[in-house]
Design a protein around this nucleic acid. Sequence first.
DNA 1: CGGCTGCTTGATCGCTCTCAAATGGGGTGG
DNA 2: CCACCCCATTTGAGAGCGATCAAGCAGCCG
Lengths: 234, 234
Amino acid sequence: MAHELDETRKILSGVRLFRGLAGSRLDEAAAASRRIRKDPGTNFFRQGQEARYLFVVVGGQVKVSQLTPEGHQIVVRYAGPGEMFGCAPLYGGSEYPATATAVIPSEALAWNRPVMDRLMERYPVIALNALELLGEELYETRARYQELATERVERRVARALLRLVAQAGRKVEGGVLIEFPVTRQDLAEITGTTLHTVSRIVSGWEQQGIVASGRRRIVIHRPHALVSIAEDLV
Amino acid sequence: MAHELDETRKILSGVRLFRGLAGSRLDEAAAASRRIRKDPGTNFFRQGQEARYLFVVVGGQVKVSQLTPEGHQIVVRYAGPGEMFGCAPLYGGSEYPATATAVIPSEALAWNRPVMDRLMERYPVIALNALELLGEELYETRARYQELATERVERRVARALLRLVAQAGRKVEGGVLIEFPVTRQDLAEITGTTLHTVSRIVSGWEQQGIVASGRRRIVIHRPHALVSIAEDLV
DNA sequence: CGGCTGCTTGATCGCTCTCAAATGGGGTGG
DNA sequence: CCACCCCATTTGAGAGCGATCAAGCAGCCG
């Protein structure tokens, strides 16, 4: 157990939410955390549930998605190692507005609300870090809103792929692989379109040798070409 | 001057960012603020400028908008009395990502970054309030993102009008007037469409007696009908 | 009174959605 | 190990929403 605490502390030292927190205080945060593992396809929490916990990804990838009353699904973001999700408790939200799903075997640390409140109260730097992270998310979300409002589907899909590459790309021979499964449906829900349109677009790119993709796998061969499409330099 | 400080303090006591701050501390915040007045059509700040100040609206209405590299404009939100805008300094953004324009004669209080940092450091409750406000903005932005991704233009325009009514509606004979000038172009930039499409939609509503509108003025006669459209109960 | 700004309206085009159906790879259970 | 089934994907055809292009109109201010 002491060993696991040690390990947790080490993880926390690389997490932005706790940046600037000295060693013993990191221990305190580590000791107050719960560790949760989820298999692919299972949820850390569901939209509408009471927002009890704040999470930080330790390993894997977590998809955060929302379902509209009409049954349309949209992907809000993916959270990778070191990133937080389920941040409703930070700002007083009573229910989670989205669902968090592991897309590969994933592990997260969780703090329940009173514990987190107490930590923020005692160590205000955590609140300041949270402010920074939330600000960045807001910025990012507005950027995507702007894209959605003003750009064609092809550019949005190109941008989405580039973001995924930046976040979870691994160099392989002849290109960059996105390290977790991404379906056409996922890409559609990220970019606000349909899987049919995504399929057509990606097929087109495939014929041009820009990407290669199989079942739930995508390799980008010529990222630069995607950048050209995203920036409309074509 | 002492009188003005008193007045400022009174204003701050109703501002959510400073909620929970005791009297003398409110005075401190008030004393550290600058008061800025802007005529309609002029800017508190421009997109791309160094983000020196955080603002809180005292009176009037402030339009926050972004311009894309391609020259498309989108309206991010309107900020009314008591609301903050230009919050980049809160989360460490170095440049304003948007432009803030007075749409009617407006007045705001402003704190420059080091002053605000110091206030938050000394009174962490401000940081917690900021966290809450930013969280709400994030929630709101995601909701609008979801609308844009999944809903038809007419519903989005209906929702936009209802939001404007909720935020700045004044009862007049036979309806609710939006208290500041809103052009078709504005509505288009709020909802991610063109002024032509907005014009057609609003004209249609006008013929059904749901709204009445003149040059930059909009009166909603039957808000309930708009709700029906927004919720697709038609 | 003239010009500007905001609004309306028509005609057309095309991007993207919708509906439909077929294909194929992978995993599972026998 | 094989057969089957399911899920992801592809592809076609067609419709339609909304953008684009193009004028014309009408308050309002100078």
